[in-house]
Design a protein around this nucleic acid. Structure first.
Lengths: 183, 183
DNA sequence: TGTGCCATGTAATGCGTTACATGATTGG
DNA sequence: CCAATCATGTAACGCATTACATGGCACA
């Protein structure tokens, strides 16, 4: 069982029919933590999934805007999704360029590294803030809604815990680099 | 500036000349946290890097073992590496299949999901134990050595903090899934 | 007039995975 | 005898990135 964009798209369509553009927006906004894809990738994937009979579409005309292709799951798509959910995954691979860079950090300016770490920290701080805002929204919703969104909420928690870990680590590194500079 | 295996290999060769197999072992063991690559990928990459003049090699014969191709950095390779280190990176993309699965978790058995989360937890616990063992080694080395390994140590810290975050999150999810089952 | 959003794509290239392939040695 | 480790690769395929392309609308 390979993992791919395919299953992420099936998952989103299972909840709500969408156009390629809608999917892109979902990835960019609230699902950014767990999956990212470019519009080119999404449109290409939708095309092959349609050819494979996993999804169907109809055209929706709009006023003052281009037409949309609204995709929906077929039965085959639904089957493929629940089949995938039932199979265990391999552990995700870690390929983190920043760590490679730090490992080779003696080749760079300390102050340059420090700048890069600060940027990294800022970016993750921003992500964390976004996630916390979504969490607040969730917490102030009705009990009924909280039950419905329990699983998505757990994925959000992954985002929050993960971003906090990024910040903690970044602070450690920044502290070190500042210390090293003063020597 | 794209990131790739190339820079990870340059980084390793900068410290120590190695064969493709040696590099593989380094990725698999202590560098597992920040970069992973298969042997096929590594051999292919070494070949193109050699063609591009970034590395050189000599053959080393061994008793009772196949010959090795020992690669070293060329000046061009060294330049390419320090050049790369000087340029800022984009943020890494998050594509986490487990989160997609959890998001679509209503399509699966709760007990199946629970099993998968437990496996996930075990795997990350194992990683954390490995990293902590390396950390203990580091902490019990001489001050001189600690200074030399300060940057690699920071990458190890990323591993430790990150794995701990995985465990914390996994526990949260497991607690939830157990609760849901009893309802 | 320019920037950005809406909405869709193609083409080329690069990166990663899976399967296939060889052949010797060591240890249970 | 079987499995694992050492050591190297090829070929086919799939997934991701970058560049290129179109065209209307809204807002400053």
């Amino acid at each position: 069982m390979p993992m791919s964009l395919k299953h992420a798209i099936l998952t989103l369509l299972e909840t709500e029919e969408s156009s390629g553009y809608d999917l892109l927006k979902q990835f960019q906004s609230r699902l950014g933590y767990f999956w990212n894809a470019s519009h080119q990738q999404i449109y290409a994937q939708l095309k092959t999934m349609h050819a494979d009979g996993l999804i169907d579409f109809h055209i929706e005309a709009q006023d003052n805007k281009p037409d949309k292709k609204i995709y929906t799951l077929t039965n085959a798509g639904r089957d493929a999704l629940s089949d995938w959910v039932r199979h265990p995954l391999k552990l995700g691979k870690v390929n983190d360029a920043l760590l490679v860079k730090l490992y080779a950090g003696h080749l760079a300016d300390q102050s340059q590294l420090l700048e890069e770490m600060k940027d990294y920290r800022d970016n993750h701080q921003r992500m964390l803030n976004t996630f916390r805002a979504i969490e607040d929204e969730y917490r102030s919703s009705t009990k009924k809604e909280q039950e419905n969104l329990a699983l998505p909420y757990l994925t959000l928690r992954r985002g929050i815990i993960g971003e906090q870990a990024c910040l903690d680590w970044a602070d450690e590194v920044i502290r070190f680099l500042k210390g090293a500079r003063s020597r």
